[in-house]
Amino acid sequence: MSFDLFKREEKTIAEGHALLETNALPKDMQAHYEKLLKAYEKQFKSTKRLVSLSDRNEAELNKLASEMDQKNQMLEGLSKKLSKYLSPQIYRSIFEGDREVSLETKRKKLTVFFSDIKDFTSTTENLQAEDLTYLLNKYFSEMSKIALEYGATIDKFIGDAIVIFFGDPETLGVKQDAQACVRMSIAMQRRMKGLQEIWRDKGYEKPFEMRIGINTGFCNVGNFGSDERMDYTIIGGEVNLAARLESKADPGGILMSYETYALVREIVAAEELEPTRVKGIQRDVRPYRVIGIYDDMEPGRFIHKDQDGLLLMMDREKLTTNQQRHKAIAELEAAIKILKS
């Protein structure tokens, strides 16, 4: 059965011609009718051409759309791969168009985290390259996962060291950023303990031990480098201080500056250490060793009050002898007496 898309129009034209051939029309109408039929035929031809052109254009557009789709998928795949070389916040801000990719920096108060592995060189000198790769990758993967959970910006990995900061490009406020950084550091050290057990079970004699330094202060943050190749990073004396604190931290420990401690002391139990001088920093540095987050620690161990005009921190684990307790009671009673007078 044949099918013609325009059979109705063709039928009309055929009927028109048949009528003309009969010469049944009045003479003066015959010429007009012939003219009208010709115009209809012309119009019909144009319609046919237009439909065919429109179909071709649509097919071309569909082809282009499908090619665009494929290209988009390819770009999406590529950008996904590229994203692994960037901090997710930076990746997001670039791809969402919020950030200019140009050599621009700004001064901002950030909390900077610096960590490395204690005695990395001597710990790893007897390791096979494959073992070292496994250990390092596992260590970096686990630490990065935790960092991202806490909203950190992972700046870079330098050998066995990790540089992380809070406060750019996203910030919850200076205080919240500092608290998130300390919470993250505690979570990392906790995870390291788990990893050390796994590594020991696997036969690694001296599993990695991480040291962490934290400092809060004004840094220059942004794109450094050249127009062709730039790095989103931080620079400044406060960054160096975080690195210096890290080098003084105990293995498995976290050391923070007073500037960070002042922002987190409501939630973090810490022990003040002797003021110290560090290379490149003019002032004395007062380091604080992180003991833990009050909420996470054993109930009743700490009595902690922090309000305007009163700062009380009692670690009952350190008041075990009668002498220690009596001394503490005397101090508290003397303070109460002054307060009441």
Partner: peptide, 14 residues
Amino acid sequence: FNSSTAKVLMGLFD
């Protein structure tokens, strides 16, 4: 639908 299909549909309506 494309233009040729539109023509088919118009015929179908008729």
